[in-house]
Simulated scan of single mutants.
Amino acid sequence: MDNLHEHSLGISEYWTREYLKRIFEFHFKRTPYWKRIAELLNPDLDELFQGSLVEVFEGLFNLGLTVEEDYLRSHWLDFVPVSYDGKIRFYQSSGTTRERAIGHWDARYVEVLHLYLRAALDSVYGLDGIYGNGHQMRVIAHGPYGWYQDEVSQLIWSYGGVLYFIGMETDGLKRVLREQGLEAVLKILDPLVRYTKRVMETDRINTVRTAPPLMSLFEPYSESIETAIVSGVGVNREFFKYLSNTFEGTLLIPLYGYYLFGDLVGIHRHGQFWYYPNYPTTIIFPLKQVDGEYRVVKRGERGRVGVIIARPEVLVVKFEDETALRVPPEGPFRWDGFGDPTRNLG
């Protein structure tokens, strides 16, 4: 983990494979869930971690190591290593889509995630050239308390910025938005709406970090918003077209979030949004079944999103309930990403 402090965007495939192997070896010996799996399957890790990273990824999924989301949500303590000596904090997911899940992070991972975000945002979007030298980042961030607050705080402070973090109750909000519309959501979030308006009318806010539906709160102040960072299933071509027309001159940055690994940085390419995981702690490839086995799709093809979250404090192999395209390395990222994620599995 310490190596990531110097090479957050310079991770090689060989180094990633070696890192993954050590993480699996550790959890197979120390973590209740993975100890049971190792005893049941008796995998040969030396053999499994031969070949390319794609081959290793396929092998891990074909070995039957995937964790069901419902089991992960109900048995989160099974994934904590015995006698782990790091600094663990348990967090809840936002709960916008379904019942909140509980997961844990080591404090060191917040540092690793911050280094990845800072390096990617500066390289792709040049934020270090916009803020500083007398021009201060002044931010409103909306979101649930937990890892998200730590992540966004560290990021804003690293630019010398100041932050208004406005916590929000997010249980079931996506269902309300889908069934009742934005006005119903804003009624539930009335304290957030009032506080946001109060701050915007008083301070010189130039940066916002929020969910797609809540960007409407900033429309009256669009001329002052220099940077808008958004994430969520509503981030698509139509939404960004609306943002570009409404917030002329605003730098728009898409992120992809999940409660066990935080945010991933996205870029806009060929009318799509491509996201790149923070290697080596998060590995993502779209998969499809061929003759009964999982195979990573070719670049440009769509498959079901497979995720490996591999850190000293937590190991999870799982499918997400969405599909995405496999996309090639782009910009500062030396590894493949995934693009145009959608929840429609049909």
Rank of each mutant, 00 (worst) to 15 (best):
N236I: 12
T207G: 03
A184M: 14
Y159N: 01
D171C: 09
I225Y: 01
A211M: 14
D171M: 06
I225K: 00
W157H: 14
F165T: 02
S222H: 09
P213A: 10
G172H: 11
N206P: 09
K197T: 05
D190V: 13
E179W: 05
E226A: 07
P212I: 01
D190A: 11
K174L: 14
L182H: 03
S158P: 08
L217R: 05
L186E: 01
M215Q: 03
K187A: 12
G172M: 12
D203Q: 07
D203E: 14
Y159G: 00
L163C: 03
P213I: 07
N236P: 05
V176M: 13
T210K: 01
P212C: 05
V185K: 04
V162H: 12
R209C: 13
V235K: 00
K174V: 15
F165K: 07
E183C: 01
V235M: 04
V208G: 00
K187Y: 08
D150F: 13
N236L: 08
G234C: 11
V176A: 03
Y195P: 00
I156H: 00
D190S: 13
G181P: 04
D150K: 08
V193Q: 04
R209E: 09
S158D: 15
V208M: 02
K187Q: 08
V233L: 14
F218N: 03
